[in-house]
């Protein structure tokens, strides 16, 4: 495919997606909104986890800060939704800068654990804050406008994907990849690793926070446990890794496919959905450790051997 054709195709798909509210039923629209938000979250995680190689469990904190930022601005200060979104994003950036600098010095598992612990701390802090409604949370003004929420979520996903596209083709993104591949070597070659990591963390956080803000207004009710839900972070990771980390469309495809499967399963045989989810993760990690994007790239060449070669490569 030529680049022009690719752009044309991308625009066509986006337009088709944008026309969904006029075509689909209310249930499908709701499912689509949550899928788009999940895809945005996965795309955000892709920046820090996929490109930079830092396995963040703190992205659900960004989501929570975005939710609460928006809710506090709207409920406590009676500000418009747009201002609330910006406030939430600002909170996320502050978090990324203040805690990112010390925490991003940790590598590997240690970074993952530190962000995981931070998310527990944030949940506990928020559930003790008067302005955030303590344990009971906040109720946002009701707005019946699923088509609007849908278009907002779609726009955010497009923005996130364009950002990742830029990262994949820029000097900045090249620096992030170098950090992922070998941080000491990256520093010794002139890359300001601290700055790059913190920026990646912050950009990743902005998208998560915006998704959180939209989600809060859409769902109209937030509480600490659901807003800072760690399993949401795990979903981001699974969707990204399933689709293909450090690829431009992988996280989006991963989110669409996994949300679709889990939606179909939970409506058909509701209780087995989570079992299936767990099984998919296990099977995917063993047989396609580099995600769908890699399968699509290599399957044509190697055929079914692709799966057994993955196992051979990584087994003891």
């Amino acid at each position: 495919m030529t680049p022009k054709l690719k752009v044309a195709l991308a625009v066509a798909v986006t337009c088709a997606l944008a026309s969904l509210p006029w075509l689909a039923s209310a249930t499908i629209l709701q499912f689509s909104i949550s899928t788009l938000l999940l895809a945005t979250l996965a795309q955000g995680w892709n920046i820090i986890g996929g490109y930079t190689g830092y396995a963040s469990f703190g992205n659900s904190v960004f989501f929570g800060l975005g939710s609460y930022g928006t809710a506090i601005a709207m409920v406590q200060w009676h500000l418009p939704f747009g201002v609330g979104l910006v406030f939430g994003a600002v909170l996320a950036v502050v978090f990324a800068l203040v805690l990112g600098i010390p925490v991003l010095r940790l590598r590997g598992h240690y970074f993952a654990i530190a962000t995981l612990a931070l998310s527990q701390v944030m949940t506990a802090i928020v559930s003790n804050l008067e302005i955030a409604g303590r344990n009971t949370g906040l109720v946002l003004p009701l707005l019946n406008g699923d088509p609007l929420f849908y278009e907002l979520s779609l726009a955010l996903l497009v923005l996130a994907t364009l950002t990742v596209f830029w990262i994949a083709h820029s000097r900045f993104g090249f620096g992030l990849i170098a950090i992922r591949e070998n941080e000491d070597a990256a520093a010794s070659m002139g890359i300001n690793t601290t700055l790059y990591k913190v920026l990646a963390f912050a950009i990743s956080g902005i998208f998560s926070a915006l998704a959180g803000g939209i989600h809060a207004y859409w769902i109209t009710f937030i509480d600490p446990v659901s807003a800072f839900d760690l399993s949401l972070n795990v979903k981001m990771i699974i969707m990204t890794v399933f689709g293909g980390p450090a690829s431009i469309l992988g996280p989006v495809v991963g989110a669409f496919v996994l949300s679709g499967i889990s939606e179909i399963l939970s409506s058909a045989i509701s209780s087995v959905a989570s079992l299936f989810f767990g099984a998919v993760i296990i099977v995917a990690v063993v047989f396609m450790p580099r995600g769908l994007a890699d399968v699509l790239r290599r399957f044509r060449k190697t055929g079914w051997r692709y799966f057994s070669e993955n196992v051979k490569k990584y087994r003891l």
Binding site: A55, I238, V286
Partner: peptide, 13 residues
């Protein structure tokens, strides 16, 4: 089966 895969894969599995 995945002992030599990147640490992230073991975390996920």
């Amino acid at each position: 089966l995945i002992a030599r895969a990147p640490m992230f894969n073991t975390l996920l599995i």
